[in-house]
Design a binder for these strands. Structure first.
Length: 469
DNA sequence: CTATGGCACGGATT
DNA sequence: AATCCGTGCCATAG
C-alpha cells in the first residue's frame, strides 16, 4: 500500500493512486471541515483559484443570489420523478462558522454532529488554563458510555504528569458542566452532584441530598419505611424526596442527552445537506440542497497555466508545473466528492421519502453495501460519505446521515409506541409478543436492549411509577 | 419462580 | 480486519 499522500508533498509520484486517496479523504469530510481544507489549499497553492463567487456551483451560470434562480426554476417542474439535488454554497444558507485561528485541539477538531466531549469543552474553555485543557480533554476521552469516569484521579495525574489537585479542579468543573454529573465515578456520586447543582440553582428538596448520601442503597431498594425511621421523618416525606429525585435527576446524564433516539434533544449543527419539499410540487420528489463549502468553483488559474508554459528556466517551470498539477488534482477531487455525495444522497432521499417526511417508524432498512451497488461506487465510499455527516429534514430536525442505515430504528419506534400505549406494564417478553403482530421478530433480550436504549425503565419499575401517580 | 441485565459469541456490516 | 448487533446463557434481584 502506498503511504498516505499529502497535498503538501512536493512530488506527485503516482497520480492515479494519489487521486484516489485524495478523493477518499475528501469524501470523509463534512462541509465545515472541507471549508477549512479548501482554505488551506488556497493559501498553500498560488495556482489554485476560486472562480467567481457569484457563480452557481450547479449550473455555472452567474447569479446574484442563492439558491440560484435558474436551478430553483427547475424545481417548479413537476415531471421529474427523481429527487432534485442542487449544490448550494453553505455561506448562502447559514452563518459561516468562524474558523479557529490557532490550533487549539478542540476547536479545530470539531466534527459534526457535535459530541459530548466538544459540547462540554466549549462550556469550559473560559474557565480552563491552557494546560488544563488537555487534562479536560483526557478526562472526557476516558468517560465510559454512561458518562462516568472509572479511572482513579491519581492515575490520571500520574499519566499526564500533573498534580492530582489540578486534575481534581478540572474534574469538578466537568462534573458541573451542562450534562450535570458526567465524570462522576458512578451513579451515586452523579446524583449527588446533580442535587448540589440544583440546589445552587434554587431547586431543592429538603431531604433529597440527605437520602442520597446516607441511604443510597435503601433508596435503590425502595425501602422508604426504613429510611423514614432513620431520618425520623414520615414515609410520605421520604416518598416525596424519592419522587423529587426521580423527577429531577438522571442517573445517566450522558445517555439522556446524547444517545437518545427520540430526536428531541439532539444537538447537531451545520448540516451537510438540507432536504425540503418542493414548494411547487409538494407531493413530488423532494429537493435536496447539498451544501458546498465555497461559492463558485475551484480551478487552475488559466493565466498562470499559460504563463507557466513560457517560463524558460527548466527548473522553474517544473516547479510551477507541479503546482498546476496539484491544483488541478485538488479541484478534480473536490468535484468528484460533490458528485459522489450527490448520487448517494439522491438514492437515499428517493428510497426513504416516507421516513424523511413521516418519521422514525417509516425507515426502510437498507445497508451501505446495497446502496453502493445501486450508485455503483465502492462500499467504503458510501461508508465515508455518510460518516460524520448530518442532514436537515423538512421538519427542521437535523439527523446524522448514518441514521438512514439504522436497521432497528423502526423496531425501536414500535417498542416505544407499545409501551406508550400500555395500560399495565408489559414485560420485555410480552412486548416481544406484541411486536410479532407488527411483523417484527425480536428476541426478548433484544427488546430489553432497545428499551434501555430508549431510556425506558423496566416493567417492574414502571409499575411503581403508575402506583405513585 | 419470573424478569432483567451483564457477558460473550457468531454472524453481518463496514 | 475491525466493529457492530442480535441473541443465548447465566446470575441476581424481587
Amino acid at each position: 500500500m502506498v503511504t498516505q499522500y499529502q497535498y503538501q508533498s512536493p512530488v506527485v509520484r503516482n497520480s492515479a493512486t494519489a487521486h484516489l486517496t485524495n478523493t477518499m479523504r475528501l469524501i470523509e469530510k463534512t462541509c465545515v471541515e472541507l471549508e477549512a481544507e479548501i482554505a488551506k489549499e488556497l493559501a498553500d497553492n498560488p495556482v489554485l483559484q476560486l472562480v467567481d463567487q457569484h457563480q452557481c456551483p450547479e449550473c455555472r451560470r452567474p447569479v446574484d443570489r442563492f439558491p440560484c434562480p435558474h436551478c430553483e426554476a427547475r424545481r417548479r417542474r413537476s415531471d421529474l420523478d427523481e429527487p432534485i439535488i442542487y449544490l448550494s454554497p453553505r455561506s448562502a444558507a447559514l452563518t459561516p462558522v468562524r474558523l479557529a485561528r490557532d490550533d487549539t485541539p478542540f476547536v479545530s477538531r470539531v466534527r459534526q454532529p457535535e459530541t459530548l466531549r466538544e459540547y462540554v469543552l466549549r462550556q469550559l474553555v473560559l474557565d480552563l488554563a491552557a494546560d488544563e485543557r488537555s487534562i479536560a480533554g483526557h478526562i472526557l476521552d476516558r468517560l465510559d458510555e454512561r458518562g462516568f469516569l472509572t479511572d482513579p484521579l491519581v492515575e490520571i495525574a500520574v499519566y499526564l504528569h500533573v498534580l492530582p489537585s489540578q486534575v481534581e479542579r478540572v474534574l469538578k468543573l466537568i462534573q458541573r458542566a451542562d450534562p450535570v454529573g458526567i465524570g462522576a465515578s458512578g451513579v451515586r456520586e452523579c446524583l449527588q452532584i446533580q442535587v448540589e447543582v440544583l440546589e445552587a440553582e434554587g431547586v431543592a428538596h429538603p431531604l433529597a441530598a440527605r437520602v442520597l448520601s446516607e441511604h443510597y442503597e435503601l433508596l435503590g431498594r425502595h425501602e422508604y419505611g426504613v429510611i423514614a425511621r432513620h431520618c425520623r421523618v414520615s414515609i410520605a416525606e421520604v416518598e416525596s424526596a424519592a419522587h423529587f429525585i426521580r423527577r429531577n435527576l438522571t442517573p445517566f446524564p450522558a445517555r439522556a442527552r446524547w444517545n437518545d433516539d427520540d430526536g428531541s434533544q439532539e444537538r447537531y449543527f451545520n448540516p451537510d445537506a438540507r432536504i425540503t419539499r418542493n414548494p411547487y410540487n409538494p407531493d413530488g420528489p423532494l429537493v435536496v440542497e447539498l451544501y458546498t463549502p465555497t461559492a463558485g468553483s475551484l480551478r487552475v488559474d488559466p493565466r498562470i497555466r499559460a504563463a507557466v508554459k513560457k517560463v524558460s528556466d527548466e527548473e522553474q517551470r517544473a516547479e510551477w508545473a507541479e503546482y498546476v498539477d496539484r491544483a488541478a488534482l485538488f479541484a478534480k477531487c473536490i468535484r468528484q466528492r460533490n458528485n459522489a455525495m450527490r448520487r448517494i444522497l439522491s438514492v437515499i432521499v428517493d428510497r426513504q421519502r416516507s421516513f424523511i417526511l413521516a418519521g422514525n417508524s417509516e425507515l426502510i432498512p437498507m445497508t451501505r453495501a446495497e446502496l453502493a451497488i445501486v450508485v455503483d461506487v465502492h462500499e467504503s465510499t458510501v461508508s465515508r460519505a455518510v460518516a460524520h455527516k448530518t442532514v436537515a429534514l423538512p421538519s427542521g430536525r437535523i439527523i446524522p446521515l448514518a441514521r438512514f442505515f439504522d436497521r432497528s430504528l423502526p423496531v425501536r419506534e414500535a417498542v416505544r409506541s407499545i409501551i406508550d400505549m400500555e395500560t399495565r406494564p408489559l414485560t420485555d417478553e410480552q412486548v416481544s409478543v406484541v411486536l410479532k403482530d407488527y411483523g417484527y421478530e425480536v428476541a426478548r433480550r433484544t427488546v430489553a436492549k432497545y428499551r434501555s436504549m430508549l431510556g425506558i425503565l423496566p416493567a417492574n419499575v414502571r409499575a411503581r411509577q403508575y402506583a405513585a401517580v
